[in-house]
Design a protein around this nucleic acid. Structure first.
Lengths: 108, 108
DNA sequence: CCCTATATATAATG
DNA sequence: CATTATATATAGGG
């Protein structure tokens, strides 16, 4: 955007990072509100800055209500599919499977 | 944006609304990821469509962890327990590791 | 904060 | 789903 393309990696300069954080956070919140209004969706957005400061948005009702609704829906939707296994764990499985595959090829 | 300015109100035409929902939802998720990476922030995003379908994003860890952190930070007194990774998953990892081991021996 | 040049997002259309 | 004309978002710089 604007006078310089941006790299998709952590901005090292703390001042730049802070400025960008403010601007983009505002933009993100605006977009979230728009999506909610335009498409009649319910949105909950939680942001923790690097230093742990909390920013939030709940477009309908409260964040609490949002969370509760999420809990229920989440259980229904992917209780069996991908419940709690952290992404990391899933990735480990993938890696291992791939390795097994390679090793088996190596044996032949 | 684009060939026509947008009114900040609910889109009545169900088809248009659905299309817009898809596009903007994708955009919002992208922006959220970018903000997270660029500014090293932790973001949790929950979206319920008009018909109650859930879409979510947690940029670090799980949504569960995000929610717990939120609970503490917002100073609410909602103790929430996160279930542990399923044994099944852990076992699968063990099995795979062992298999890798055996195959490696086989190669020697 | 405000501005302005550009990068992006996306409404409308093919 | 791909393209394209415009509307927005925003990086860099006062």
């Amino acid at each position: 955007m604007a006078r310089g393309k941006v790299q998709l990696r952590r901005i090292e300069n703390p001042v730049h990072r802070q400025v960008t954080f403010c601007k983009r956070r505002a933009g993100l919140l605006k977009k979230a509100k728009e999506l909610s209004v335009l498409c009649d969706a319910e949105i909950g957005l939680i942001i923790f800055s690097t230093h742990g400061k909390l920013y939030e948005l709940a477009t309908k009702g409260t964040m609490q209500g949002m969370i509760e609704k999420y809990m229920k829906s989440s259980q229904e939707v992917h209780a069996q599919v991908e419940p709690n296994p952290p992404q990391e764990t899933q990735e480990e499985i993938s890696m291992l499977k791939q390795e097994v595959h390679l090793l088996q090829k190596g044996l032949r």
